[in-house]
Design a protein around this nucleic acid. Structure first.
Lengths: 126, 126
DNA sequence: TGTCATAGTATCATTTTTTATACTAAAGGA
DNA sequence: TCCTTTAGTATAAAAAATGATACTATGACA
């Protein structure tokens, strides 16, 4: 029971030091959680998503959607039309993330005003 | 009711497009959620934290802790000793984030194995 | 024939994040 | 006197994330 640290559980074998790190590997980054939030209510087209997430560039939106698709979180449905129509939606697996997104949503609703004010105070000399 | 979009609520007035974005502004980034996870059980010293989060550098740990402190999420207690002793802990406000961290923890516990396997499959040609 | 819309790609530039490395103070002990 | 420890800071460099801009295919429509 000296300096042995085998006991950090088996997360290292997955390449993570804890479960939270693993979760972040899926929903981490500046945009993914926000994208998932908008998908909670159902499928959304590419341009619609772009409008819902102002500030994201077309390139970033594409990249993030591709990663979420690769990880099995969202489904990409292409309609054979011109102009193109592509709809994104949560997979069953992706829906298991909803509790996380909802808790982030709830926290934001309850505490954003406070943190904004708090930062304004701090910015006296920043 | 035409192209008016005033209705995206008042989040823009805070500089965010939705509450989730605001939350990410506090706990976003590669390390903050992991740090908070380790602080759930009580106060931790700097070096102890460094050991619990392998992979993080001393500089990054310092930077992240400073930001969390600035936002009122954690408390920094300095003991006047040599060698120094500094303990970090969640503030009352910081504890409001626990539900988010716990849901991330839970998801990681339940789904990490699946995503690791899933990615191994995908990596046949990656 | 020229124009429009959607859902992208390609290329390059910039910004942000992260790392590596060396350095510091100060008290106690050998 | 030198070495150890903790909790950092300073500086520069590298890597990763993000952004800006221009470009594409396709069919419908004027």
């Amino acid at each position: 029971m000296n300096n042995q640290q085998f006991d950090l559980s088996n997360w290292q074998s997955y390449g993570y030091s804890c479960p939270v790190e693993a979760t972040l590997d899926i929903i981490g980054g500046k945009w993914k959680s926000v994208i998932l939030y908008h998908l909670i209510d159902g499928e959304i087209r590419f341009n619609e998503l772009k409008r819902l997430v102002p500030g994201i560039t077309q390139r970033m939106l594409t990249l993030q959607l591709r990663e979420l698709e690769r990880d099995g979180i969202i489904h990409r449905e292409v309609y054979k039309q011109v102009p193109p129509k592509v709809e994104y939606s949560l997979t069953l697996f992706g829906k298991t993330l909803i509790p996380i997104i909802k808790s982030m949503l709830q926290w934001g609703i309850e505490h954003t005003e406070k943190i904004v004010h708090h930062r304004e105070q701090a910015n006296v000399k920043d």
